[in-house]
Nucleic acid binder design. Structure first.
Lengths: 155, 155
DNA sequence: TATTGTTATACTCTATAACTATA
DNA sequence: TATAGTTATAGAGTATAACAATA
């Protein structure tokens, strides 16, 4: 991999450290909105993919089937998701996002975006531009990981 | 990529989504190295700040004192940290990183950096440059958050 | 009395193994 | 027999409240 890179060489260690710090930051911001990371990412997956089989959801989230059974039960108690039967196969449980769940995602996303913008206002215009440029690059980085693992991941 | 960027307005919602996806990605990469996020970030804090009081560590990690008591106990069982008495104040427990803990951090960091570089190789040179530029901007974003919390800047 | 830390208890989230129901 | 999901059980990680030891 000896290619000619543009000015800025990517330092994996530096990026790993920066991302770890951001992860810690976002984890703490998440605690404030009263829903766990597990619940939030599962709801996001339901929003992205639409109604899913429970086992499919478990695979997408990278957890076991029993773990997803319990997580979906908690989401049902919260009113954010619901189980429905599958007409074609009586063994299958389809998990649906409820309107309340969709609302929660929207509010959570708005709050997070707002907080990030607050923080970004304290940065220089150059830093803000760098973050804007990195946003889509980060998406593609994540997509590269998914390609490795699933070979076909629409997102 | 054209070197001439438009004003590049930062979209908080887009960045929040991108970062959330990266968080999910890193969480899964973390599972592979056999240590929990809680343990890892606590060890990193010890590495950064040096030996800490247990209560100080709890504050830095944003968890309660009882939670840190248990976490430190688990880290001691793992051999990654240890409690020591404080000569000046017998109530105080000082928590130290062990050599094994420092080793673990180094290996973890190397593995993560390596994995990120693997993924980055699948990106365009422009995307890699964008990530490189964003790395330090992300650090400053996190620093802005810390400033808010440690200097009691009202929002 | 205030502080530092631990213990007691309970809830979330996860895993593995054993089970039920359906195909 | 194989698949989809649940139940049983155990352990990590967290919180609040009550406690012990020291200042």
């Amino acid at each position: 991999m000896s290619k000619i890179h543009p000015p800025a060489e990517l330092d994996g260690a530096a990026l790993a450290n920066s991302l770890e710090r951001v992860v810690s930051l976002l984890r703490r911001l998440a605690l404030a909105d009263g829903i766990s990371q597990s619940k939030a990412t599962t709801l996001r997956t339901l929003e992205t993919y639409g109604p899913c089989r429970l086992s499919e959801l478990a695979t997408l989230e990278g957890v076991t089937q029993p773990a997803m059974t319990q997580l979906v039960s908690r989401l049902e108690l919260d009113g954010y998701a619901e189980r429905r039967a599958c007409a074609e196969d009586a063994r299958v449980v389809m998990v649906h996002l409820t309107p309340a769940g969709a609302d929660l995602l929207r509010r959570r996303r708005d709050a997070r975006a707002h907080r990030l913008m607050e923080l970004a206002e304290r940065l220089t215009a150059d830093d803000r531009a760098a973050l804007a440029a990195a946003s889509s690059a980060l998406d593609r980085l994540v997509a590269a990981h998914h390609t490795d693992h699933h070979r076909s991941t629409p997102t």
